[in-house]
Amino acid sequence: MSDKVTAKSDVVVGLILLGLAILFFALSFTLPVRRAGLSPTTFPRFVTIVMALLASGLIVQGVRKQKAATAVSEKRSADEVTRRRRYALRFVLLAVLGIGYTQLIRFLGFVVATPFMMAGTMLLFDEKKWYRIVLVAVISTTVLYGLFRIVFRVPLPRFDLW
């Protein structure tokens, strides 16, 4: 990332963290206050105040860096642009796959959902040979099921669509 982009992202992240600190600080007023000893509000308030100060510092630092950074136009090659786009797509698909897996496993169960999750992840990691995808997905799921369900007796989610 260029200095200018880093500085900009620092400002944005600083603002997000500052907002978070303010939100939690405000919410701490909904908690009960204890006269003697440590109140449930004390620690969160200390944390949020320091966090707000640090976030403000990051914002100031980011703004200063933005001003100091020379506007260097970053020209990217067509290949680089395509690579970045592909990565962005892969990132989104893996995020959807992971979240989808955690939602579907409760209905499909571990044995059914896991091979699909693994196959999808392998595809995203550019595995092209379908037989390898099937073998790895099925064998890994079987080994993990055997180890955790049979040996460790973990009650893995089961197929429960109805």
Binding site: M118, M122, F125, D126
Partner: peptide, 15 residues
């Protein structure tokens, strides 16, 4: 190959 290693690691993370 990372394309085999990391899907297995992801499954282990979930487990």
């Amino acid at each position: 190959p990372v394309r085999i290693l990391f899907p297995i690691i992801l499954a282990l993370c979930f487990l």
